[in-house]
């Protein structure tokens, strides 16, 4: 389980790095997405969410189909605001929070699988790994980070800090945030 503090920090950081968008938009690959980077695999996934019309009333399945199919005619990888004129519905704040919490729980299970003993890691190390898995995904984190994963298996948090840097377009600030977390973990466990 994540503590309330960990969950709050994660939500704040994910919103900063991934954005928080109340309407459907297309991500870099052209997939329909909403909220804090929540990918909607298909129309049925979108129709399960509690979208609302501009007047606050609940959107119908046809309303949601309208927004979803409207986006599919547009190019991907634009700023989220580019898509705003092409959709009519929004997702209420509490629904975005619910999705993000579910997303965090899903990645938590992935991290527990990749790193046995994950729940016993120092809090800063856990926050660092959450940031990494949100960004690079479970399969990339598991298979394409041999130096980082070797350091983590050895509970060498200073080593993990050294090998945590991501390639552009990940910003220097985001890389430094994760590095600082691993370095903090190293001091916590000394």
């Amino acid at each position: 389980m994540l503590s309330a503090h960990e969950n709050a920090v994660l939500m704040r950081k994910l919103e900063r790095y991934e954005g928080r968008v109340p309407h459907m938009y297309l991500d870099a690959r052209g997939y329909v997405t909403v909220g804090v980077g929540h990918l909607l695999a298909d129309l049925a996934a979108a129709q399960k969410l509690a979208f609302a019309r501009a007047n606050g009333s609940a959107a119908s399945a046809d309303d949601i189909r309208g927004d979803f199919e409207s986006l599919l005619t547009l190019p991907g990888n634009r700023l989220a605001a580019y898509y705003r004129p092409h959709v009519r519905l929004t997702l209420p704040e509490q629904e975005i929070d619910r999705l993000t919490t579910a997303h965090i729980s899903s990645f938590h299970r992935e991290l527990q699988t990749i790193y046995p003993g994950f729940d016993g890691f120092p809090t800063p190390a856990r926050l660092a790994l959450f940031d990494l898995i949100f960004n690079v995904g479970a399969s990339n984190l598991r298979t394409a980070w041999p130096s980082l994963n070797a350091a983590i298996r050895a509970r060498d948090w200073a080593g993990a800090a050294t090998h945590s840097r991501r390639a552009p377009p990940v910003s220097a600030q985001r890389n430094q945030y994760v590095r600082n977390l691993f370095e903090e973990a190293a001091t916590v466990t000394q």
Binding site: E18, D27, A28, R29, G37, N77, I133, F134, N135, V136, G137, A138, S139, N140, R166, A167, P168, P169, V170
Partner: peptide, 8 residues
Amino acid sequence: VDAGSYAA
């Protein structure tokens, strides 16, 4: 990447 937001 699969199931992550990274794109370059």
